[in-house]
């Protein structure tokens, strides 16, 4: 275990350092990315303003504010697109090199992703989160989110991270079969922003569609932790959604291993 840590830790810390190296880019990026969330906020406020009901898709106006910003925080921390790196490695032909080294390619990618998680959590994640809590108490007149909810949220986020990167690893394997993964990445992002609830809470979808979503891993990526944070689940539901997340981690892990085996076989045959 300790040895493993020694092997994979550099992947994480290098990524973190790499990210921090571009300082100038960095401050403005925080500022503008926050700005983007505010625009979304206004759009939703206008929608609530035009609606006859005060509750839309099971969320009050105040809850929607929390939803928008927590989705941003969660998504930015959890959704680390490792398939970009896979496609980079495929293009540069460095995957084969990774096969020679005594390290697990998937583990090295996930470690690198963890480095990004830390970075994204520090800036801007945690600041928006704190800002949101302050806003909640002072402007919206809600109480601070309870410790239990926060802890459950964090636990859920950790699983979300694994669900996302394990899924994305499988997805990244597509890169071995195409020379141009960019279009696929676009399609993936478009679909995910919808299916994970980033664009609009999943509760806005028709009942039938929501049923389908229950059998897909995407709702477990962002929607679940945020709804936990909002305290929208009963104890029984809570156990269920967390168990479902855990199940997805296992399923996607196994699936990824299977796909990787196939891909490496092909790699060996083709000598790529």
């Amino acid at each position: 275990m300790k040895k493993k840590l020694r092997i994979y830790l550099p992947f994480a810390s290098n990524e973190l350092k790499r990210q921090m190296a571009y300082k100038g880019a960095f401050y403005l990026f925080i500022f503008i990315s926050l700005f983007g969330s505010f625009i979304q906020y206004f759009l939703w406020m206008a929608i609530y303003g035009s609606a006859e009901n005060s509750v839309l898709g099971g969320l009050t106006r105040e809850e929607m504010v929390v939803y928008i910003f927590m989705v941003y925080v969660t998504g930015s921390v959890v959704m680390i697109s490792i398939s970009d790196w896979v496609s980079d490695d495929v293009v540069k032909g460095t995957v084969a090199m990774n096969l020679i080294k005594p390290i697990d390619y998937r583990m090295s990618l996930i470690s690198r992703a963890m480095g990004q998680v830390v970075y994204r959590f520090l800036v801007p994640g945690v600041f928006i989160w704190i800002g949101l809590e302050i806003y909640k108490v002072t402007v919206l007149g809600l109480s601070v989110t309870g410790v239990t909810n926060v802890l459950l949220y964090l636990a859920s986020c950790i699983m979300s991270f694994f669900i996302y990167v394990l899924f994305d690893f499988c997805f990244g394997m597509v890169a071995f079969f195409t020379t141009y993964i960019f279009g696929m990445l676009m399609a993936k992002e478009a679909l995910l922003s919808f299916l994970t609830g980033q664009l609009i809470p999943l509760s806005f979808f028709p009942e039938v569609v929501q049923k389908v979503f229950d059998y897909l891993p995407f709702s477990s990526m962002v929607y679940t932790p945020v709804m936990i944070y909002l305290g929208k689940y009963s104890d029984a539901q809570l156990c269920f959604v967390l168990a479902r997340q855990a199940a997805w981690v296992v399923i996607l892990y196994v699936l990824g291993s299977l796909i990787w085996k196939q891909v490496t076989k092909r790699l060996v045959v083709l000598g790529g």
Partner: peptide
């Protein structure tokens, strides 16, 4: 160029 400090701590300091 901006001054770089060694190590992870240095990266944070550099920020």
């Amino acid at each position: 160029s901006p001054k770089k400090y060694p190590g992870l701590k240095g990266a944070i300091k550099g920020l």
